[in-house]
């Protein structure tokens, strides 16, 4: 399996970051960084990461099912994550979530037909003092109002 040069460099650095014989430590970071490039945790990615860190694909499967950011199915190009946990809830994060579902016609962990946007109702993402918060891929959006959410989604629909 081939990756971009940047990702290869990152993998090399990761595999050198841990004590000798402890390369398995790179497993979760490699899966997450790999997913960012490949689009999901594909069977091929599992085999490749397993080979590089020296475990079996089964061991990789066992680990990846634990982590909520690792996805076996491809997400949308823009993965919109809306927090409805307590601090965001107090600033109507739940209403933002309902609004986004209605506007896009999709639900939790679903993708729009064109593959452009996916939605996920997420647990606390660490933006509690600037609630309600939304994350698009890794970008944070704070103090999101219904109007700001509409603009955000409209722009994502058009964005290349």
């Amino acid at each position: 399996m081939t990756f971009s040069l940047q990702l290869e460099a990152r993998f090399d650095k990761l595999l050198k970051s841990y004590p000798p014989g402890r390369q398995r430590s790179a497993l979760v970071p490699m899966l997450l960084y790999g997913q960012d490039e490949v689009g999901s945790i594909s069977d091929e990615l599992i085999d490749e990461v397993a080979r590089r860190v020296g475990v079996t694909p089964l061991q990789v499967n066992e680990v990846l099912s634990y982590y909520s950011m690792l996805h076996r199915k491809p997400l949308g190009k823009y993965h919109v994550q809306i927090c409805t946990n307590i601090s965001c809830l107090l600033w109507d994060g739940d209403k933002l979530w309902e609004r986004a579902c209605k506007k896009l016609g999709i639900g939790h962990k679903e993708v729009t037909a064109d593959g452009q946007i996916s939605l996920e109702e997420v647990e606390c993402m660490g933006a509690c003092s600037w609630a309600p918060a939304v994350q698009v891929n890794y970008d944070f959006h704070h103090f999101v109002t219904p109007e700001k959410l509409d603009d955000l989604l409209d722009n994502l629909r058009k964005k290349q």
């Binding site: 398995r24 430590s25 790179a26 970071p29 860190v53 690792l70």
Partner: peptide
């Protein structure tokens, strides 16, 4: 000094679960 990314798990904030996660296992 090295950075290590988690991948979405509240439980990994608990110290012993974090250490498991750092070793490439379930937290």
């Amino acid at each position: 000094l090295y950075t290590h990314t988690g991948a979405g798990a509240y439980e990994c904030g608990e110290e012993s679960a974090l250490l498991e996660s750092l070793e490439g296992k379930r937290g």
